[in-house]
């Protein structure tokens, strides 16, 4: 792909970088996909800024376990429903947390839709979202008494 085709994406990255500078890291810029890495202290401010830009529609929250780095990565996927020039572009906002103390602030006061996604990440990876309305069991059985199942050290029996 030529550089010309990525001008919308680069414009967004420039706009965000000029505000946050060194605080964020741009992991990749692909066609309609941009990934940023933000620290947990800046995530609230960052989310408010991109929401004001027009990225107002939360898609999903995913957690990935990286035992080799000792990290858990929480990724928010956000797209835009109100700003037509950003239609189709998905921002991936990643927060890397220490695996032995995965605590970060919730984004449900900015994007109401992430409430249940965050609850799922809490039970599947053990990430604690501070100030969440109801951080509780969601999909797993009520008597689940094991480590969070999407962590890599949880093994399916018999495989």
């Amino acid at each position: 792909m030529s550089d010309q085709s990525l001008y919308r994406e680069k414009e967004i990255v420039d706009k965000i970088s000029s505000k946050f500078g060194e605080k964020i890291k741009t992991n990749y810029i692909n066609t309609k996909r941009i990934k940023f890495e933000v620290s947990k202290d800046d995530i609230i401010e960052f989310a408010k800024f991109v929401k004001d830009m027009g990225f107002d529609h939360p898609i999903s929250v995913a957690g990935t376990d990286y035992p080799k780095d000792g990290k858990i990565e929480v990724t928010y996927h956000i797209d835009s429903c109100s700003n037509e020039s950003y239609f189709g572009i998905v921002l991936t906002i990643a927060v890397r947390l220490a695996r032995d103390e995965p605590i970060m602030p919730t984004l449900m006061n900015i994007y109401k839709g992430v409430e249940y996604h965050e609850r799922e990440t809490f039970e599947m990876l053990g990430v604690v979202f501070k100030d969440h309305r109801k951080l509780d069991r969601l999909l797993l059985p009520e008597d689940w008494a094991d480590i969070p199942p999407l962590r890599k050290d949880f093994q399916i029996k018999g495989r």
Binding site: D56, H57, P58, S82, Y111, K112, G113
Partner: peptide, 8 residues
């Protein structure tokens, strides 16, 4: 507004 913010 709610439809967008709730992520439906």
């Amino acid at each position: 507004e709610d439809a967008i913010n709730l992520g439906v």
